[in-house]
């Protein structure tokens, strides 16, 4: 069963990100000239100004560098507690996500994690949400 989630930001480059997720791939834009990877999506490279950014597949490996738990309800769809983690991806960007199969009680500094997807649904329809489980 798909989990109800608050709405994604959609349109333009954001749609491309979610289309890859729906194929089970985590891809982020990168500029091959400047060797930079971007998250959240950008219309243009912030360094050289090229619009020609490539959606590169990521390894899906990373380390937890911070986390927090919402104990107060912010969304109708998500009763607390809601665990969130910041994963430092192998390729550089820090990616806000949810732990899958573990909670804040299991987290240690730089805990290695790997990518997985869960089935979700928002007002725009079903989608796959990138989350992380222990590596």
């Amino acid at each position: 069963m798909a989990q109800k989630r608050p709405d994604r930001t959609l349109g333009g480059v954001h749609d491309t990100f979610w289309q890859y997720c729906n194929q089970g791939e985590l891809r982020l834009q990168s500029c091959s000239r400047c060797n930079r990877t971007f998250w959240p999506p950008m219309p243009v490279c912030d360094t050289c100004g090229t619009f020609d950014l490539e959606w590169k597949p990521l390894s899906g490996r990373g380390k937890v560098v911070s986390f927090c738990t919402f104990e107060r309800q912010y969304y109708d769809e998500l009763p607390p507690p809601v665990d969130c983690i910041v994963v430092k991806l192998e390729e550089g960007p820090q990616f806000l996500s949810n732990p899958q199969g573990f909670t804040w009680k299991d987290i240690s500094f730089e805990l290695p994690v790997k990518l997985t997807f869960i089935d979700c649904e928002d007002a725009a329809g079903p989608f796959k949400l990138p989350v992380f489980e222990r590596a």
Partner: peptide, 18 residues
Amino acid sequence: HPWGWSSQGAHWALMFKH
């Protein structure tokens, strides 16, 4: 939002946890 992360205050929680 899709990961259930919002609020100004949550920024500071992440900073302190680090």
